Simulated scan of single mutants.
Amino acid sequence: MIIAESGDLNRFAHYRQYVNYCGFNLSASQSGERCSGYSLSKRGNARLRYAFWLATTVAVRMQENTLRNKYECYIREHGDTPDQRRKAVVAVATKLARIAHSVVKNDTDYQRYFDISHGT
């Protein structure tokens, strides 16, 4: 579903263009001098965003992988509320979109790696 919705990924020169196409980019909510923060723009392909959401929920439930580690690190830093869990899934889905773009664009197989954390 991801490949079908994305089309030819070689048309995106950088992964940020693909992330924007998926609708995972952030937009500022501001009026005049007020800035109430950033939220997901949702100005991309909704079906593609949903496909990454589903893939992320499966990846987060698996035992050992870097996507689960990123999810747990986000929860540890920001708290374990339903809103923070949703934001963590979106952060991991964005990382998964970057990985998918890289794998397809470079025509390589996915090689699992583990993030090296600095500090405690």
Rank of each mutant, 00 (worst) to 15 (best):
M1R: 05
I2P: 08
E5K: 04
S6M: 10
G7W: 03
D8V: 06
D8E: 13
L9M: 12
N10Y: 02
N10V: 00
A13E: 13
Y15D: 01
R16K: 13
R16S: 08
V19Y: 01
V19P: 05
N20F: 06
Y21S: 00
Y21E: 03
Y21P: 06
C22Y: 07
C22L: 08
G23S: 08
G23M: 02
G23Q: 05
G23C: 05
F24A: 00
F24W: 01
L26P: 11
L26K: 13
L26H: 03
S27D: 12
S27T: 12
S29L: 11
S29G: 03
S29Y: 15
Q30M: 14
E33V: 11
E33C: 08
E33D: 13
R34H: 10
R34S: 10
R34W: 09
S36T: 12
G37V: 07
Y38G: 05
L40G: 01
S41H: 13
G44F: 05
G44I: 12
A46D: 12
R47K: 11
L48Q: 06
L48G: 03
R49G: 04
Y50M: 14
Y50L: 14
Y50F: 11
F52K: 01
F52I: 00
W53E: 06
L54C: 11
A55D: 00
A55H: 01
A59Q: 06
R61N: 11
M62Q: 07
Q63N: 09
Q63P: 08
N65M: 06
T66N: 07
L67D: 01
L67S: 03
R68L: 02
R68G: 12
N69V: 08
N69M: 13
K70V: 09
Y71I: 07
Y71E: 04
C73S: 14
Y74A: 06
E77N: 14
H78C: 06
H78V: 07
H78P: 04
H78Y: 12
P82S: 01
P82E: 04
P82K: 01
D83G: 08
D83C: 12
Q84H: 06
Q84R: 14
R86C: 11
R86V: 09
R86D: 11
K87H: 15
A88W: 04
A88V: 14
V89W: 03
V90G: 04
V92F: 04
V92A: 05
T94H: 09
A97K: 05
I99E: 12
S102F: 15
V104G: 01
V104Y: 12
K105D: 10
N106E: 15
N106A: 15
D107E: 14
D107F: 00
D107A: 10
T108I: 15
D109Q: 13
D109T: 13
Y110Q: 03
Q111P: 01
R112V: 07
Y113N: 05
Y113M: 03
F114V: 02
F114A: 06
D115A: 06
I116M: 07
I116K: 07
S117L: 09
S117C: 00
S117H: 02
S117G: 04
H118G: 00
H118K: 08
H118F: 02
G119W: 11
G119V: 14
T120V: 09
